[in-house]
Design a protein around this nucleic acid. Structure first.
Lengths: 179, 179
DNA sequence: CAATGACGTTCCACAAGTGACATGTCAACC
DNA sequence: GGTTGACATGTCACTTGTGGAACGTCATTG
C-alpha cells in the first residue's frame, strides 16, 4: 500500500487539496505511481481518519486542504527507510515470451519487434519529458532526474534485449510449431 | 487479466490438474507471473464455465484434469499476438527515490546502496537458477533462457543505476534536508 | 497400524486498483 | 445573461491479487 505514502510524501512539502494531489499524480508521479481520482480521495479520507493527515482549511467549492501531521511524518519516514526487497513484478510481456512457441515463427518475431518498438517509443517519450522540464539543482530536480534516468536505462535494456532475442530465435532454430 | 492466459498457455502443452499447474507457477513461472492457490483454482473454475477448458478426467483424491478446448486455444492465440503496449509499472523503489530529500543524506545513500545490493542478489539468484537447469535446444529451453536473460540484464541495469545515482548524490550536492 | 507428508480441492475475508458516474461551484468570456 | 471549462468531491460496481483456514485422500515407512 504505497499510495498512502505517495500522498504523505507530497504533503510533506506543502498542504494541498485532493485536486492538487491528483494533478501531481497526473504529471510528475504518472510514470512511477499512477493513481485515479477514486483512489486519491478515498485514501485521503482514510489517512485523515487514521490521524496521519488533518483538514487544515476549507475553501470555495468544497475544497479541503490537507496537512500532514506529526504522526504522518513519522509514518512517511518509517516507510522511506524500510527498504523491503522489491517484490516480483508480473510481466505479461515475459509471459508471452514463455509461450513463444505457441505462435508461428513469424508471429514470434513480430511480437519481439513490437516490444522493441514500444520500448524505443517509451524512451522517446521520456527524452521529450526530460527536455520539457526546467531542471535546476533543487533536491526535487536531482531526484526527478535520477528517477528518469532509471526509466531511460530500462528502455535501453528492453530494446537491446529484444534485438538479442530476435537473434536467438534466428540462430537457435526455433521453428514453426503448430498450435 | 493474464493469469487465465498463463493457465491456457500451460495447458496448451498437456492436460494437468490444478495442483500440477500450481507447481508450474511455483517453479518456472515464479519469476514472471506468480500466482496463489486460491487464484489458480478459482480461475480454472471460471475458465471451465466459460468453455475454454474442460475437465477431461477425474483421478484419485478428487483430482480433476483440465484440458484446453478449441475455444481456449483460440483465446490463447489471440492474446499471444495482441501485443498491447506494456502498462506503466508501479515502483515503490522509484517512489522513494522521488522523496529522497525527505531522508537524511546518510539514509538516502544507505537506501540506494541497499537497492544495489538487492539487485545484485537477484542477479545471483538468477545465475544459480540458470546453472541448475539442464538446457537443451527445445523451444521451452530457448524461451526460458530468453526470459532469464531479461531478468539478468534488468538486474545489471539496477545495480549500475544505483551506483550512478549514488555518485549523483555525492556530486550533485544533495544536502541534509530536515524532515 | 499409526503417523507423516505429498496430493488435491474449496471457500472466505480483505486489500488494492480501475473506470464510470453523479454532483455541484466558481470565474471568465462572448 | 448564458455557456463553457477549470475546480472539486464523492460513490459504486467490478476485477485482481493476498493470505489463511478447512477438509479430505492416498502411499510410504517406521
Amino acid at each position: 500500500m504505497s499510495l498512502r505514502h505517495a500522498l504523505l510524501g507530497l504533503l510533506s512539502y506543502r498542504p494541498a487539496s485532493g485536486y492538487d494531489l491528483l494533478k501531481a499524480f497526473e504529471t510528475s508521479l504518472a510514470n512511477v505511481w499512477p493513481a485515479t481520482q477514486s483512489q486519491v480521495y478515498g485514501e485521503l479520507g482514510r489517512l485523515t481518519d487514521a490521524g496521519l493527515l488533518e483538514v487544515s482549511a476549507e475553501g470555495p467549492r468544497g475544497r479541503k486542504e490537507y496537512t500532514i501531521t506529526g504522526t504522518g511524518r513519522g509514518e512517511l519516514h518509517t516507510w522511506l527507510v524500510s527498504a523491503e526487497p522489491t517484490r516480483v513484478t508480473r510481466s505479461d510481456m515475459l509471459l508471452r515470451v514463455f509461450f513463444l512457441d505457441r505462435m508461428t515463427a513469424e508471429e514470434g518475431r513480430a511480437y519481439l519487434a513490437r516490444q522493441r518498438d514500444f520500448a524505443a517509443a517509451r524512451a522517446e517519450h521520456l527524452r521529450a519529458l526530460e527536455a520539457s522540464i526546467e531542471w535546476d539543482d533543487s533536491p526535487l530536480s536531482t531526484q526527478g532526474r535520477i528517477a528518469l534516468e532509471y526509466g531511460l536505462r530500462l528502455s535501453t535494456v528492453q530494446t537491446d534485449w529484444a534485438d538479442w532475442a530476435l537473434e536467438q530465435l534466428a540462430t537457435g532454430g526455433a521453428g514453426d510449431q503448430p498450435r
